[in-house]
Amino acid sequence: MSSTIREADLGTKVTPLPARAAANTPVPLDHRIARNPGMKLDLGFMESVRSVNRSALERRVASLTKRRSIKADNQAAWLLRAVACMDLTTLNSNDTEERVRRLCAKAINPFRRDIVEGLGIAGETIRPAAVCVYHPFVATAVDAVRGTGIHVAAVSTAFPHGLAPLSTRLQEIEASVRDGADEIDVVIPRGLVFGAKWRELYNEIVSMRAACGDAHLKVILGTGDLATLRNVMLASMVAMMAGADFIKTSTGKESVNATLPVGLAMVRAIRAYFEETGYLIGFKPAGGISTAKASLDWLVLMKEELGRPWLEPELFRFGASSLLTDIERQLEHHLTGHYSANHRHAMA
């Protein structure tokens, strides 16, 4: 009886990427991640992935979160992983430079000292992979995290709606890159999806990628606006073909945030793109993920559908603001057996 498993063989088609400064102690992965160069728009390929059955996806995520349970020390480890894969975010209209500095300080030093010691993790730096801010605060953030390896992500292209002229949106990217952002979270104009204007969407994202230069491009689909999982799948494919490094669910400003069925459609898009091209695309769910339990569900989704490589910050990020505090509370509970309170942990 044969028994070979075709686990993702990640080394064959890709070339190594120059190491980026990493926020977290680099983990020796048995693969090398090459940056997605994109490909030409392939409508036939899109056609082959357009079958997305919503009710089946809903059933899958409903049982997925019941099929896996992470307990005790493993749970603590997984929650630390959630922190390491976090884009600690502030995207409020009343943000100030001081507020952003506070956020950066929290990112640099996320845990109380007794928690670090209690968990025995002092030997390694575990902290959010990036901070994510609006353009005006990029320079402040870059300044604040300098030398830590924490990335600075800027939301861009007329976030959250994406409805400014293309030239304006591209200039915005360039400005953020100039200010030192090395990750750019762009939004797509959702109308292009409804109109099935795939070529136009593709071209826009290609020019955004060009504007990013070396900065990594995360393409926000605004899934809460896209109505169907089929649209989510197709928009994901266009974004990856156009050269996205990450695809991201939401701005956090839509009425529906990141949901697991949407996430499942997107990670399956990533898998299809990998199988077709050999390139590994990152995934970033964002918006509404505020509990430690929810973060575990997302990590399980990544591990089950894509495998271990997608549990690294190079390929997976949470866009989150209040999640970190809830994780700290859970970690404290893990150590003390006492349920914790928010005010016992430093705010961002």
């Binding site: 896996r68 030997g123 591990k303």
Partner: peptide, 16 residues
């Protein structure tokens, strides 16, 4: 296996 090892392994472990 300490927590850091588990952090790298990212296995489920037993959940009896």
């Amino acid at each position: 296996m300490n927590i850091l090892d588990r952090y790298h392994a990212m296995e489920y472990g037993p959940a009896p």
